[in-house]
Structures are given as C-alpha cells and as structure tokens.
Amino acid sequence: MKLITHNMLTSKCLKGVVTGYPLAINATYVKVTEVGFDPEFIGRVIPKLDWEVLWVAADSIGHSEGLPKTLEPKFEENEEFLKKAHRVLLEVEVEEGHLTCPESGRQFPISKGIPNMLLNEAEVQ
C-alpha cells in the first residue's frame, strides 16, 4: 500500500463510525522501491490529497524526514519538494501491517502490500 492510497481510505462505512479518517498505520514491513519521477503529475495530484494526513502517515512509519508539515505556496514549482513528495507518495510502500479505524479500533490487515478493506455485513451501516 502506497501512502497516496492510504490518503483515500476511510472506515466511515462501519456502523457507528462518523468520519473514520485518517486510518492509523501500523507497519511491520515497509519497502522503498524506486519509481520513475513525473514532477508534473506530483504537482497536479497533491491538491487532491489531504497533505497533513499524508505527513502524519509518513511520520508514523519513519519517512517524514525533510517533508514540510504544511504545503507552501507554489509548491508545484519547487522541484526539490516534489521529489520528496514523490518519494513518500509512490516509493514508500507498506507491505505488511495493519490499518486501524480511529473511532472503533477495527483493524484492517495489510498483506503482501494489499490492504484488506472488506467488512462483514454485520459491521456496516
């Protein structure tokens, strides 16, 4: 699971959960793989994400070094920043571990890099 994906996951569909966002990450194995850098794409996709959530997620698995906590104006022109963002968004991957719902404590396992977000019918709203 890449952190860009984590940014979009929520446990809101659980019964009794209001926002279910962001999910806490518990990683037992984090992998970093080099991925081709496309600065234009990174600049375009960042406004669609919750940057603070990304920062906290990166920090929680030890990959926030050098990453600003808040977005600076004209970040899309700052190549150095885009490279760092690219790294945490696409290169850092949680291979094993679990996600935890901030409200109910329900855990979602991550195995072989794939988070399992399936719910039982009894758990849903």
Binding site: M8, G113, I114, M117, L119
Partner: peptide
C-alpha cells in the same frame, strides 16, 4: 496501487 474492497461498502473517501 491495489486495494481489496467491496463495491457495496467501499472504504474510499
């Protein structure tokens, strides 16, 4: 990226 999910109760924002 891949996510295991159910279309009826999808855990995406």
């Amino acid at each position: 990226d891949c996510v295991r999910l159910d279309l009826l109760h999808s855990c995406l924002r």
